[in-house]
Design a protein around this nucleic acid. Structure first.
Lengths: 339, 339
DNA sequence: CTGAAAGCGCTAACAT
DNA sequence: ATGTTAGCGCTTTCAG
C-alpha cells in the first residue's frame, strides 16, 4: 500500500498538519522538522495523493482538451504545446477526441465537468455558438474558431484566416496574376474555410478585379476532393493565361496539383497554386508548395496559458480573445511566369 | 455551487445512502424512491463528483498514456483508438508527450502514479527494459516495443517488425530480385528498427544469398536522412541490374526516392523500393509506395483493452503479450522490370 | 511554531 | 428496504 500523510507524520513524530505544511509550503516550519519529515517521506517513498488533495481544495489540476481528430498533425501539434505549458504549471491534460461528432463533443464536455476538470479547451468545435455559450461551472477557451459575443467565462484564440486568405490574394496580385481560381473548403461547416475564402475574395475585389475574374469551386479538405474537383474543372478549361489557384488546404492542393499534372498541364507554368496550412509534406512535393503557415504552437500554448491564468487568478475569460497572425511561406508553386 | 449527494437526499427526503444506491445500482431501491430521487437529481442538475468517489473507492477511472510525439500520426492513431475503448468503459485518458526524452518519460510515470491513474500505457518507450521492469503500484502495458522477461504486472502489445522485414524480403525475392540495399533506421535506439532489419536480412540469407548481396546504410527515420544517405550512396554506384531497396520507414523512403530521381535514375525501373509504415501519403507519392502497414488501431485498442481488463479483473498482466501482424501493401514502387 | 480536529463528497458496512 | 455513520487522504481553521 501507498504511504499516507499519516504514516509520514507518525514516522517523523509530528502531526499530519505539520507534514502538510512542509508539502504545501504555506506556513513556516522549523528546519529541523522539515529535515525530519523529508527524510520520513523518502523512507516511505511517500507521494501525495492528488485525488485526496483535489477533493479538499476543490481543484483537480486537470484540464480537459477536446480535439476533432488527434490523428491530424495540426491538432497533434496544438495538443503538444498545450501539454507543454500545462505540465510546466503542474496541470495535466485529459484528452478526448470528438471524432468530429457534435454529440460526442457535448458528451465529452459533460463528463469533463463531472470529472472535475478545472477548465476546458475546445479545439475547432463543431457545436454552434449558442450552445457553446451555455452556462458552465468551469472556464472554457475555444481554439481555432472565430469568436462570438458572450457574457460567459469563455475566451478565444484563433488564427486570422481572413488575413491568411488575403495574404494569398495579395501575393498573387503583387506578382501580376490576373485570373483566379478558388478551391474553397467546406464553407458551411468550417468557419475558417469561409474566412479564408472571404479574405481572398474581398482583397481581390478591392484591387479592382471583378467577380468574373475569380472562379469558385467547392469541395471538402481531402486529397481526393482536390484531385477530382480540379480534374473536372480542367476538362473544359480554355487556357488563356497563367492561372492563379488558391487551394485552401495543402492536402487538397496536393490533390489538385496531381490533377493538373495528370491533365498535361504544369505547375506553376500553366497554373500557379498556393495552399494553406503548411503541413509537413508541403515542403517535399513538386513543386514545393507555397502556402500559409498556421501558428499551431501558439494556438496550443496561448490557449492553455490563458485558461490556466483564469483558473489560478479566478479572473474571467470573458471578452478575452487573441487573434494570431499567419504567414506566407514562399516556395515554388506560385511562381509568376511569362505565358 | 455544484449540488452534492446531500442536497439530492434532502430534496428527495431520503438518506444519502439511498441516493448512492440508485447511482451505483448495487442495491435494490424501490421504484418510487428511484423515481423521486431521479427527479431531484435532475432538478438540481446533479452530477456525481468523480473525485470524491475516486478517493473512496481508490480508483480514478483514468489511465495514463505516454507517447513519444503526439504530432506523429502513427502515435495519434494509437491514441485515438486507445481513447475509444477507454471511453467505452467509462475511463479517461490523461495524455503526456515525452518528446522522446527518457527523463520526461520517467517523470511522467511518477506523476501519473502520484495522480492516481489506474494504469499506464507506455507507447514506444525510450526507457530500458530494466528500468521499465521496476516495481510500480499500477499495471502497465508497453506498446510498440518487443517484450522482455518480467515478473511484474506488465503486458506487451506490439507489431511483429521482424516479420514485417521478412515480408519485404520475401516479396523482393519472389519477384526475382538478386541485389539488395537496406536503409536501416536508428538500430541502436529503436528496437523495431533493428527487428525490421533482422527480419529482412535473415530471410535473404536463408534463401541462399550472401552478405555481399545486401548492402547496408544506416540513418535516422527522416526525409532528409533518406535523401542524403541515398544520394551519397548513388554518387559512386555502378549499376548492373535492377536493385531492390528496403527503406525501413516511408518518410525516409520518400526522401530516398527523391534522391534517386534527382540522380537521374528511376523508381522502380532502376531501383525498386519498399517502405515501412504505410503513412497516409505513401499512397500519393510517385510511384505509389509499396510498404508495410502497421496495425496501429489494434495497437491502441488492444493495449487498453488488456489494461482495462487487468484493472477491472485484478488479474495480472504478467506474461501477457500480444504480437500483431503487419501486412504488405502492394503498390507500384517495387515492380520487377527487365533490366 | 505545532497540533487537534473538522470536513471536502462519496460509498459501504452495519444497524434498523 | 432504507438509514446512520465511519472514513478514504488531505488541507485548513482554530487553539495552544
Amino acid at each position: 500500500m501507498r504511504a499516507t500523510i499519516k504514516d509520514v507524520a507518525k514516522l517523523a513524530g509530528v502531526s499530519t498538519a505539520t507534514v502538510s505544511n512542509v508539502i504545501t509550503r504555506k506556513k513556516y516550519v522549523s528546519p529541523e522538522l522539515i529535515e525530519k519529515i523529508t527524510k520520513a517521506m523518502k523512507e516511505l517513498d511517500y507521494t501525495t495523493n492528488t485525488i485526496a488533495r483535489s477533493l479538499k481544495v476543490n481543484r483537480s489540476f486537470r484540464i480537459g482538451l477536446i480535439v476533432p481528430d488527434i490523428t491530424n498533425p495540426f491538432f497533434g501539434e496544438i495538443v503538444k504545446y498545450a501539454e507543454k505549458v500545462a505540465n510546466k504549471e503542474n496541470y495535466h491534460i485529459t484528452l478526448c477526441d470528438s471524432d468530429q461528432s457534435i454529440e460526442k463533443e457535448r458528451k465529452i464536455i459533460n463528463t469533463f465537468i463531472e470529472n472535475g476538470v478545472d477548465g476546458i479547451i475546445n479545439v475547432a468545435p463543431r457545436m454552434k455558438d449558442r450552445e457553446l455559450n451555455k452556462k458552465r461551472p468551469v472556464p472554457m477557451v475555444i481554439v481555432d474558431r472565430p469568436a462570438f459575443e458572450t457574457e460567459k467565462d469563455i475566451a478565444f484564440v484563433f488564427a486570422d484566416n481572413y488575413e491568411g486568405g488575403s495574404r494569398v490574394a495579395k501575393r498573387f496580385i503583387d506578382q501580376g496574376f490576373k485570373k483566379f481560381l478558388c478551391l474553397v473548403g467546406p464553407v458551411d461547416i468550417v468557419p475558417n474555410a469561409k474566412k479564408r475564402l472571404m479574405g481572398f475574395q474581398e482583397y481581390v475585389l478591392d484591387q479592382g478585379f471583378t467577380d468574373s475574374d475569380v472562379e469558385m469551386l467547392q469541395c471538402d479538405f481531402s486529397f481526393e476532393a482536390g484531385y477530382e474537383v480540379m480534374k473536372k474543372y480542367l476538362m473544359n478549361y480554355q487556357q488563356e493565361e497563367q492561372l492563379a489557384a488558391f487551394v485552401s488546404s495543402d492536402i487538397m492542393a496536393w490533390g489538385a496539383i496531381e490533377a493538373i499534372t495528370d491533365m498535361g498541364l504544369r505547375v506553376p507554368k500553366d497554373i500557379a497554386v498556393i495552399g494553406y496550412d503548411n503541413i509537413f509534406f508541403s515542403n517535399f512535393i513538386h513543386p514545393r508548395l507555397t502556402t500559409i503557415d498556421n501558428p499551431t504552437k501558439q494556438l496550443g500554448a496561448m490557449s492553455t496559458q490563458l485558461l490556466l491564468d483564469a483558473i489560478e487568478g479566478k479572473e474571467s475569460l470573458k471578452g478575452n480573445y487573441v487573434v494570431l497572425n499567419s504567414k506566407l511561406v514562399e516556395r515554388q508553386s506560385d511562381e509568376r511566369l511569362p505565358f
